[in-house]
Nucleic acid binder design. Structure first.
Lengths: 167, 167
DNA sequence: GGCTTGTAGTCAAGGTACTTGACTACTTAA
DNA sequence: TTAAGTAGTCAAGTACCTTGACTACAAGCC
């Protein structure tokens, strides 16, 4: 699929990496636009990536740090912003004086609900465009690729990350 | 595919958006690691995205700006860095006193060559993991999705971008 | 010629999303 | 009770983007 094009050709590339990137980007753009349309203007990609790791019941900040691929300082900065925007709140952990619990606010839970709805809508559109069979094949291939990856390589940004999950 | 999980579940999500992101990320990580291993330590994702738009024969900086989805100032900053690292060089355009030509240096062309090789290697591994049939189905589905997108939506970051193409 | 408008590129300042390093507060185990 | 580890914060710096304001040159018009 990686074609050798000669000197002056302007053709767009057509290798797996680009196609995956293109599709992923399109999904994210669609999702972010729908979230903004739903009134969640505070929504950004980085925040989505972090929120995806926070369970609906809330969790320790340290647990969040373990789950995410980024540094604890980066997480803290993102949480500072999310807290300032009223999406999450941080409470002292009664079990451990050092720890803090990160919990969704009402506003945050509303956003999660809308996020789920948007995901389903997008998926429905994809199935409409590709047909159920092709869509299933796509998901199967992507899952197979993910299963082949050892979850977290020597690199930090392994396969554990995500954009807005639905735990 | 978007499952509704109850309060405390920690299961990873399994919707198209996440799977696409995961696969795209894995590809990029693999590509970047291979490029670093090949001695191209200057390589970053943003630079790759820009380099992908520069034809092997070189081109006008203004043409590069038209092709890329980002601002001309951002492109200039990236080019400043690439020039400082000796990947590209900028020459005055003899045809137009305002313009500049962006051209690969020897070092830049070497990187492109290695990039093509790495892309082929990764693709080969993917085919090995999925089987030729499934891989073809994956590419077909991704292409169909891309074809369904109107190339550039109202949003700036449309479907025209890419990570290191092979023009 | 001179004048206006448009294009090519640069400079400056600001924001987001990260990084590493150094620190405080608390817990746990010897 | 003290040493060592864990949880979180503070500070400073980098990469990659943005918008706004600017200079230099080109091209069309009179």
């Amino acid at each position: 699929m990686v074609k050798h094009l000669d000197e002056k050709t302007d053709a767009l590339p057509d290798h797996v990496g680009w196609r995956l990137w293109q599709a992923s980007r399109a999904w994210q753009t669609e999702f972010a636009a729908a979230m903004r349309a739903a009134g969640h203007g505070w929504f950004t990609e980085a925040r989505a990536g972090l929120l995806g790791h926070i369970t609906r019941g809330g969790m320790r900040q340290s647990a969040l740090i373990e789950r995410s691929a980024i540094s604890k300082q980066a997480i803290q900065q993102l949480l500072d912003g999310l807290e300032a925007d009223g999406i999450v709140e941080r409470l002292p952990d009664p079990q451990d004086g050092r720890g803090k619990l990160v919990r969704y606010t009402r506003k945050g839970l509303d956003a999660l609900r809308d996020g789920d709805r948007v995901k389903i809508e997008i998926e429905r559109r994809y199935i409409g465009r590709l047909g159920a069979e092709r869509f299933t094949a796509l998901m199967g291939a992507l899952r197979a690729l993910a299963a082949g990856q050892p979850a977290a390589r020597d690199d930090k940004a392994g396969a554990e990350d995500q954009i807005v999950e639905s735990n």
